[in-house]
Computed example of a mutant assay.
Amino acid sequence: MAAPLSLALLCALCAILAWIDIRSGIIPDWLNLAIAALGLLKITMTGDAYAAIEAVGEGVVIGVLFWLLRRLYFSFRGVQGLGLGDVKLLGAAGIWVGIAGIPLVLLVATMTALACVGVLQLSGRALTAQTSLSFGPFLAAGLLATFVLQQYGF
């Protein structure tokens, strides 16, 4: 599968993810699975079996690390700071961009989320410590930006 085709399919899945997460506050398991499976398909079509196994391993490690971070945050604060769908999305993103790409995914996601919060604040919306904002669309943007940078080096 060529990189432009896989990018187009990933964009479509990320757009669906953003739409669902903004409207309902959840990221469906089938959508995270589709993103992971598409990434695995891309790797198997362009690489060898070892690369696919390595990518799945990286995705699992990333998912477990963020699941542990989620649990740790909950034990300290008593509230969930990161949804389980976000954790699964980060695991699926790991298949696409690897462990080395996750910091950039998070950087883009947090910067775009902060920009969005800034726009909401400037528009007069009251934001408090209890204000909830779906993070999935920002993670999807981070995944897309990181994948494009890795593939095309812009």
Rank of each mutant, 00 (worst) to 15 (best):
L38Q: 07
G39N: 01
K42N: 11
K42S: 11
T44D: 00
T44S: 07
M45R: 10
M45Q: 14
T46W: 09
G47H: 10
D48C: 06
Y50W: 14
I53R: 14
V56P: 04
G57M: 02
E58D: 11
G59C: 06
V61S: 09
I62G: 02
G63Y: 01
V64L: 13
V64Q: 02
F66A: 00
F66T: 00
W67Q: 10
W67H: 12
W67I: 10
L68P: 01
L68W: 01
L69M: 12
R71A: 13
L72T: 08
S75N: 13
F76E: 02
R77I: 15
G78R: 13
G78L: 03
V79P: 09
V79G: 00
V79T: 15
G81C: 11
G81Y: 07
L82G: 04
G83D: 07
L84Y: 13
G85R: 00
G85W: 00
G85A: 05
K88N: 07
K88M: 05
G91V: 13
A93G: 15
A93K: 08
G94M: 04
A100E: 06
G101P: 11
G101I: 01
I102Q: 03
P103Q: 02
L104P: 11
V105K: 05
V105I: 01
L106Y: 06
L107I: 15
V108R: 01
V108D: 00
V108Q: 02
T110Q: 08
M111R: 08
M111Q: 10
T112N: 01
A113C: 08
G118R: 00
V119N: 06
L120E: 08
Q121C: 09
G124A: 04
R125V: 12
R125H: 12
A126S: 14
L127E: 03
L127N: 08
T128N: 05
Q130C: 00
Q130V: 05
Q130H: 15
Q130M: 10
T131Y: 09
T131Q: 06
L133V: 15
L133E: 02
F135V: 15
G136P: 11
P137C: 07
F138S: 09
F138C: 12
F138I: 15
